[in-house]
Every structure is written in structure tokens, then in C-alpha cells.
Amino acid sequence: MIATHHIFVLSALLLSVGLFVLLTKRNAIVLLMGLELILNAANLNLIAFNRLYADALHGETMAVFVMVIAVCEAAVGVALVLRVYRHYATAVPDQINQLKDPS
């Protein structure tokens, strides 16, 4: 039996690295990759803990929907990045800072 605790640690790792990528990388596409990592970490948790309540499949069902949403979000996200890239001619998020405080 795979220890639930180990899966939990794994998902925590995925989450942390996903967050790290999200906070650190200077490329919009890479940010999307980090976002996918975070979503997958959540999925892993859902599926793993479903084992503890084996009579129902709520966890897995939710994981399906998470995937659906992740896909939608990835699609829209890439479209956005492309649009932004076209306007600002850069994919570096730091340089898309027109919404900062004007002072």
C-alpha cells in the first residue's frame, strides 16, 4: 500500500515547485506551466484521498472537473499570453506593468 502520507508530501512538493516557478520565472508561458503544476498537485491530492473513502467516488469526479477547468484555463491563458505578446512585444511579465501606480 502506498502511504497516504507520502502522496501528500509529493503533492506538497508539486505545489511548492509550482509556486516557485510561478513567482520566479520571467516568461509568461513558463508561468502557465507552473500553474499547471499547482493544479496537478491538487488533483493528486483529490485522487489520493479518495482511497480513504472507497464507497464513493467524489474525489475522482472532482478531479475530472478540475482537469476540465485546467484545460479551459490553459487555453484562455495561452490566448491571453499571445494577445499580450502581440501588444507589448514581450513575454516577460515584469514588463507588462502598465497597471502599476502612476507615481
Partner: peptide, 9 residues
């Protein structure tokens, strides 16, 4: 204000 620097990260 320095916090609102327009950088999402």
C-alpha cells in the same frame, strides 16, 4: 505604493 508596481509576480 512600492507594493503596487504592476508586476503580478
Amino acid at each position: 505604493r512600492a507594493l503596487v508596481n504592476g508586476k503580478i509576480q
